[in-house]
Design a protein around this nucleic acid. Structure first.
Lengths: 228, 228
DNA sequence: GTGACACACGATGGATCCAATAACAACCCT
DNA sequence: AGGGTTGTTATTGGATCCATCGTGTGTCAC
């Protein structure tokens, strides 16, 4: 749209609305790890932080809820949910089934420029050594591959699954390091090749393998999850 | 706690909160077909209908949005989305991939009493001739089979997919009638048998077949969908 | 007659104030 | 001293009023 490159893959919602602006800022803070699972989001505190009244904050919390980033209890407030190992495992199994569909539908409309962009991201991943940077690049890699999917609902559901598990991916990476980078790069290269050939079967195969291996690796570190 | 029975039916969200009460009522109205896709949900009108101010109505609309039953445009309002044939097709392909997972996870915890209940519902389906009643019973059949799934997120996602496509299922049934009842009953019986044996492979096989055949039947009537 | 512009109306978004609910703590009674 | 109860406080839920945005209509110019 504009000359500025947007970091978010989908069309960003208009920022003129205060509630949406607060929701976006809170979402970024949560995904960046500044707000962690288990923390309460007090309306008054957020309101003064953004120089607004509590009303748009309440709407923002509802938006966060619809994104799966917060749970609202009546008369109790909003908090970031703490996920158990079992729950994250389920989220990843949902991803293994859903994301191939997102990718397959995206393959029907993906452009050469988008494929080039994915390859550029992968090159940057292979040169990168910082863990936090990897989380951003990995997300960009996959989201760009999904960007051409025509179904907003499918994209939104995929994004929800990514957002809800973001904290545990980071906790795992900070703990285990990126010494498995060679495996990730091999998987990404195979996936990228299948995408560039616009081959739905191979794309699904390598994507499922990639998500599944990540799930197994994640769940081998129970200490980063809630105690169930 | 006290000797008095609780008025709320335990599983349902607390109705003491006005916004939740309005959201539930609106959701029932949408699923019952009283509010149809494309219609605008004006805050003022809903507020006077429920004898409340516009504020809880705004929260209720946010809840509806998170359920996938409404889309909110800033400064424009909320409306029930009109889905094209392509979009409903995508929703059903999502169901084909996700609901087997919901069912498989449910099979690990499902009780004999729940299985008996599913069989009772199926018996009622076979005796029933009314189309509207079938929609309710069919939903009950499947939702009861998913009820033991321990993942709230997976259940909620499944429910969203059902709710979002409810209107088009009804439009199709009212148009095509239930002359395919024999096929549905056969599919349900096979699925029920697999569930009662707690067989995940057969359960997935028959469930996918059931959803897929329904999708093909649905999409053979393009006249019930938005023009894309 | 048709196009564009401007104005007015209606609906939504936001701020402030008040009521209700839940966690917390001190207190009293047993 | 312990458990139950009650009062206090902080936080959320709701109502009313005002500002802002989008839309429709009417008019004026071409």
């Amino acid at each position: 749209m504009t000359h500025e490159a947007t970091t978010t893959p989908a069309a960003a919602p208009p920022e003129s609305v205060t509630s949406q602006r607060i929701a976006t800022a809170l979402m970024d803070a949560i995904l960046a790890g500044e707000i962690r699972p288990g923390e309460w989001l007090r309306q008054d505190e957020i309101a003064v932080r953004f120089g607004a009244s509590r009303l748009p904050v309440r709407e923002a919390l509802r938006i966060l809820e619809s994104e799966g980033l917060a749970v609202l209890s009546p008369n109790r407030g909003a908090r970031i949910p703490e996920l158990s190992l079992r729950e994250v495992n389920t989220y990843y199994r949902m991803r293994e089934r859903l994301e191939p569909l997102t990718l397959i539908d995206s393959l029907d409309h993906i452009t050469d420029a988008q494929i080039d962009r994915i390859e550029g991201i992968q090159r940057e991943i292979e040169l990168n050594t910082d863990v936090s940077r990897f989380l951003v690049l990995d997300r960009e890699f996959h989201m760009t591959s999904y960007a051409a999917c025509p179904s907003e609902m499918l994209l939104a559901t995929t994004l929800r699954l990514w957002n809800s598990t973001q904290h545990y991916r980071r906790a795992f990476m900070l703990l285990a390091g990126n010494d498995r980078a060679a495996v990730v790069n091999a998987e990404h290269r195979l996936l990228l090749d299948a995408i560039s050939r616009r081959d739905p079967e191979d794309s699904e195969r390598f994507l499922v393998g990639h998500i599944r291996r990540t799930r197994v690796a994640l769940t081998s570190h129970p200490e980063v999850f809630a105690s169930d």
